[in-house]
Design a protein around this nucleic acid. Structure first.
Length: 424
DNA sequence: TGGGGAGTT
DNA sequence: AACTCCC
């Protein structure tokens, strides 16, 4: 059996742990740049604030009743780790799927014991971290997702729902479920499924896998089997290194300024270097992209990217920064209002299967070791003394492109100077 | 009007 | 490289 554990309204729940007065209140958390709503309490959902809604589109009279917070990823990331730690005490097989969701394998456990186990787990997560979670159990990931959905929506489950792939109850549920509610079926596929006469999850389950593979891809074929309870999406080993590393950000406001872009691209490249070294990887190419705001039809639109090969596989931030700067030179156009830029590290490899350049080793062993020590020291300083303690390359302290986050709460659990104060 | 990431074709 | 999907 597979369980999907999903934190309820995760970001909002994290904020409530440290600000209990938000309990029972309509609360929303905004995306980077305070752009749109990415997490909602039940109360704010009830007021009609939709997921992904731009903050400025919330009606003023609704907005007045709500607490809208900037996102505080340092806090959410740390709380997420705490939740995952508890889950790991209940089964050795945990796949962290996202910041607020984990798949657990209960293979080998007595099936009758699972609901009880999951209830105990849920209680412990709540007690140890303050975060409420829901659990869905079934024989495939896709059904576990749906079971989780039911655990959230139907109070009689008490937060833990199990779905037997062969039961009448499951059939009745799937028969009334729009196919777009199934994991992996979004708007595009749903529309195409409709033209094939498939409207509900049950119809998809009953369809011919081979037929769907022809019309779509192996992905849709797998979904059919998954809906039948056949587990065909393996639990991923999360220790697998990333295949690409992306860092991008929108500017706080549009900019035409080349210096802004140069600084942003350099900072992004340095951040990507940190991520790369964390997984002990090396990159062989870097992609740089810039673009305008797609929603501003009144301004000329421009979107361009370029791939810059790196001089041999490297994880040296200085090499990444240099290449990113060179890439920007190739795609920067004067007189354009830029909204966003970013970089992506590509062709990642590790030290073992690194390919040496045609000209032989670009760096001798000694130089390389010195560079690696420098980067390791840099990472350690930033880890122990907070991000941005040591930065490569100068950039202005206050940037046009710094993030807007006007209502960010303190990083209670990861910064000594932002600890919660308690009076007794 | 986020910022990542993945997979398939 | 484009498209689709995920959270």
């Amino acid at each position: 059996m597979i369980a999907l554990v999903d934190c309820n309204n995760f970001y909002v729940s994290c904020e409530r742990v440290f600000q209990p007065r938000l309990e029972g209140q309509p609360v929303g958390v905004l995306s980077n740049n305070d752009g749109c709503v990415v997490a909602r309490s039940q109360e704010i959902k009830d007021l009609g604030v939709a997921m992904g809604m731009p903050a400025h589109k919330i009606e003023p009279h609704v907005r007045k009743q709500c607490t809208l917070l900037s996102s505080n990823y340092a806090l959410y990331g740390d709380m997420s780790r705490r939740v995952t730690d508890v889950l790991g005490q209940h089964t050795p097989h945990v796949e962290v799927y996202s910041i607020d969701e984990s798949f657990l394998s209960f293979e080998g456990f007595a099936p009758e014991s699972l609901i009880g186990r999951c209830q105990a787990m849920r209680t412990q997560v709540r007690r140890d971290t303050g975060i409420p979670v829901s659990v869905g159990l079934s024989t495939s990931k896709t059904l576990a997702k749906l079971a989780n959905h039911r655990a959230k929506k139907e109070p009689h489950f008490g937060g833990v729902a199990i779905m037997d792939p062969g039961s009448d109850d499951t059939r009745a549920y799937l028969e009334q479920l729009p196919v777009s509610e199934v994991w992996g079926v979004a708007h595009r596929s749903a529309v195409r499924l409709h033209t094939l006469g498939i409207e509900t999850a049950w119809q998809l389950r009953e369809a011919s896998p081979k037929h769907l593979r022809k019309h779509f891809s192996v992905v849709m074929e797998r979904i059919v089997y998954e809906l039948r309870g056949v587990n065909c999406i393996e639990l991923d080993d999360m220790t697998e290194p990333k295949k690409q590393i992306m860092v991008s950000r929108s500017f706080g406001r549009l900019t035409q300024n080349k210096t802004d872009l140069q600084e942003a691209v350099r900072v992004h490249a340095a951040r990507a270097g940190e991520k790369l070294r964390k997984q002990s990887g090396l990159a062989q190419a870097i992609m740089v992209f810039v673009r305008t705001n797609r929603f501003r039809s009144d301004l000329p639109s421009y979107s361009k990217s370029v791939v810059v090969p790196l001089p041999g596989a490297t994880c040296d931030s200085r090499a990444l920064i240099r290449a990113a700067g060179a890439g920007l030179e190739q795609i920067f156009k004067q007189g354009i209002w830029y909204q966003k830029c970013g970089i992506m590290l590509m062709d990642l490899c590790n030290h073992e299967n690194e390919q040496l350049g045609l000209l032989g080793e670009a760096e001798n062993d000694e130089t390389r070791q010195r560079n690696e020590r420098l980067m390791a020291t840099l990472d350690q300083l930033n880890r122990e003394h907070g991000k941005g303690t040591v930065r490569l390359g100068m950039h202005r302290k206050v940037n046009a492109w710094e993030l807007r986050c006007e209502h960010r709460t303190p990083r209670y659990t990861t910064r000594w100077d932002e600890l919660k104060e308690v009076s007794l």
